[in-house]
Write a protein that binds this DNA or RNA. Structure first.
Lengths: 197, 197, 197, 197
DNA sequence: TCGTAATCGAGACGGTACGTCCCGTCTTTTC
DNA sequence: GAAAAGACGGGACGTACCGTCTCGATTACGA
């Protein structure tokens, strides 16, 4: 969506970052739905057209904002942990994710994107490509690590779907309930479903 | 939501029904997001204010439209089946539900409502009160009927949540995949999770 | 416009008066333009239809409200004075009229009616019939009394028109300038124009 | 109301003119009261917001429409006449003015504006500033030219007020009577009042 | 004395216009 | 010669009244 090496020349990386950060700030302040492109442009000190030049729509922009937030906070800073998580890797990952949703606008953004996806096919595609498919392995790898030996791949994917669905549902209907204990409850599913039969 | 004994007197039941039906027709034709209150009013041959008089917002209206569609099609007509479903009650219910989503705008409406709920707290409340809480027992009763004896209530509620989450997720991201085989797959969860440990 | 002997039987004279008074109160409080028929009905404790049953429109109602105010305050109470005004009859009448515009909503109502007449032919007719023609002689009689002997009728009517026009213009553009000295200034016209050549 | 140096930069002069012309056309077709901002926008092929961006209200727009009509038709085209009017300058001016009211929507607009001014203080101010004060000298100059030598300024202003009031009253109550003979009658006032005493 | 019919309060109804908001595109001006 | 600033066409929003209409409840006459 904005690979700096792929984008046309002359794009200012400074502006790019300023826009992403302004967008995050706006959502943090006003919420996803109440954030207009105009507001983001003003907040970033940028013309509206500069946003539309690089992103086709508000959801497309925020798919990238969400990615940036998650990448920066969840993965990059201590890549060590990401590479070698402690004993209960699924629960650990979810706790970190929910903490991110509490401390940054990422949760609001994701909820808003899911909402927008429900209403518009193009957004649906952007969300699927940008958020679902590209990030699937992050959780799936940990499920694989935690599942009993011999669990087949499709069952692990099934568990993955269950966990993601539950998170999405809560993100939309009761974001304040994305607690650590809910993370543990979801992590349980790996065993419950993995061991079944 | 429209209890005739609660509504102020003298509401025209004719208009009420005309509006619900017009709303369903509009969503069927244009989709949820592209349906405006103005369009519903025009389709129903009704003044805009007549809609705003009785529903505070578009989502509130469609919560009732959805309820009416589901009640009419899923529950009322052959109450017998509702009362005494055949052998695999969960799968049966879900198949009927998905069939409804394919043959009426109910699926589009629910997806749109979930999307709107993600963006607005008032809608969230309306959806929770009108769609989640009030309808929970429909599925839960069948899960109870299908679960192995001795399964405790909280586990059955957990299964209920899993199934509903999975449905919502698909409704938003891939409505065309709400197939009979997906219904069976979900019904499986009653055993998988119910039997665990 | 509401002759009690002409109106269909059974009309409640109580309501009739209540409506006129409520209307005057509303204009006094909110101004003519901001006064809706709904508000008058509520203020009078009367159904909207009860107003529309007897008056075809808002201006028609207020033509009568204005007449009632002027009749009650300007003419009736001390009819003696009306019959035998002191030395400078025109100036005296205008001072009394301007006082009425300051102490009651009559001025606002007349201004509003003139405004409405400008926008709608029916109102124009109602104003002409109810306010202009019917009341012409009140001022004209006094002009006749004050004009030099031998002044012909058409010249007196011309003076009458001049005075009325000047009042209307001020009523609309600067109602606060309907002062006693303006009354005197207008009364001067009787001599100025009357004596000319 | 539209000084190009005062308006914020980048206003499209094309649209500006298109709106003024569309507004005149609408009033000519439907009358002032029946002309909505929406209709003007549609007629001009312009978004409603483009009108609201530059004029705060319908009367403000039409003050400018009126000015444009009068300037174009009464003053500019043959400036010669404006500079050196023939023998009876007041009568001549009024005849031209009444002709304008007959041949363009200017009369309807002025009547509507006067009506609106009666109902709303803001409009009153707009009319006073835009139509009364700014245009006063057009007539006053001609009165000065026609009045007997030695007539003092305040008396000439008085005559001016009388003439304007009479015109307004007729514009509202009987626009079809703004005839040439009425123009002459009004012009008479210059002598009648000017010579008095 | 009582129907019975019109009037009444209440307010729902189809409509029209309002003035605001934001979308995504287009245009001008500035650096 | 790119980008800020923001004007633009468009379309939906939710509100306010308009004047008409439909309800029972009340009221006041004529039988």
């Amino acid at each position: 969506m904005s690979d700096p090496t792929t984008d046309t020349p002359r794009r200012s990386e400074t502006k790019h970052r300023a826009i992403l950060e302004a967008a995050a700030r706006c959502v943090g302040r006003d919420g996803y739905a109440a954030t207009s492109i105009e507001a983001v442009a003003a907040e970033a000190g940028v013309g509206k057209q500069t946003i539309y030049r690089w992103w086709p729509s508000k959801p497309a922009l925020f798919v990238e904002v969400y990615s940036a937030l998650v990448n920066r906070t969840l993965l990059s800073p201590d890549g060590a942990m990401a590479a070698a998580p402690p004993g209960r890797p699924v629960s650990e990952l979810l706790r970190r994710l929910f903490g991110l949703y509490r401390s940054t606008p990422a949760g609001s953004i994701l909820a808003g994107l899911i909402g927008a996806a429900a209403e518009d096919a193009q957004t649906r595609a952007a969300v699927r490509d940008g958020l679902v498919l590209g990030r699937r392995s992050i959780l799936l790898d940990r499920i694989r690590g935690a599942a009993p030996a011999g669990t087949d791949r499709s069952r692990m994917e099934h568990v993955n779907d269950l966990i993601v669905s539950m998170i999405w549902q809560r993100l939309i209907m009761a974001p304040e309930d994305l607690t650590d204990s809910f993370a543990d409850e979801l992590a349980q599913l790996v065993d419950t479903v993995g061991h079944a039969r």
